[in-house]
Design a protein around this nucleic acid. Structure first.
Lengths: 111, 111
DNA sequence: CTCTTGCGCTTCTGAAATCGAAGCGCAAGA
DNA sequence: TCTTGCGCTTCGATTTCAGAAGCGCAAGAG
């Protein structure tokens, strides 16, 4: 496929290809943040169908596309050919998402 | 329109409506993170067409939809009928995005 | 061995989101 | 009056997603 954005190259939604724009493009795809979140939350390598179930039964075709995106971006990787896990870079990303999740609770309280 | 997700209610891509899932859905829409980022980066209230230009000339129809989403979510608000700005809640969100932007630089360095 | 079950995905078709150009009504100059 | 730019809306074409079906494989059950 080769559709995953890379920093340094022009990206969908950004002519510059600056890292932050590439990241916002990659992470702004449907289900992306959720898939990353569930990969982390499972704690251990997880299989395709299991991951799909955890993501509210999201479409398998899109899950497949997202996993390809994540592999190309170096955020997730297949382990023993049948399961997936986050790379160290991916775990760093989850850590970076922490404040965002905290914010979502604040957001919920304010309504 | 009323399409913006709210915590506590079932959300596209999540049957639970838990705050974090609602946030991931809202922020996972195309251009959403970028629009928030540019609203913040401009420093002052900003007009529609100006904002559009800063977002790599994104489609005006989608920008309009995103601004509606953001207004309903309480993240952005119109000021004097001709410009937009982030609410305090929106500024908190940008702060929460900080680590994510830091991560994007790490991500860029690793490739 | 055959039969079933579950796996990781892929394929396909209709629905939904997005793109992008065009245009509307308005207001402020020249 | 005429132009210019504004905030947006509308609409047809394109891209993406949803969701059911299915393929090939492997591991049991009988």
């Amino acid at each position: 496929m080769g559709t995953a954005p890379r920093p340094g190259r022009p990206v969908r939604g950004s002519a510059t290809g600056r890292p932050v724009m590439a990241a916002l493009d990659l992470l702004g795809r449907r289900w992306m943040l959720r898939v990353i979140w569930e990969l982390h939350r499972s704690g251990a390598p997880i299989g395709f169908r299991d991951l799909q179930r955890r993501c509210d039964a999201m479409s398998s075709s899109v899950l497949s596309a997202r996993l390809t995106d994540l592999r190309e971006a170096g955020i997730a990787a297949p382990t023993d050919e049948t399961t997936w896990r986050l790379t160290p870079l991916g775990e760093d990303l989850v850590t970076a998402m922490g404040p965002l999740l905290d914010w979502s609770r604040t957001w919920a309280d304010q309504r």
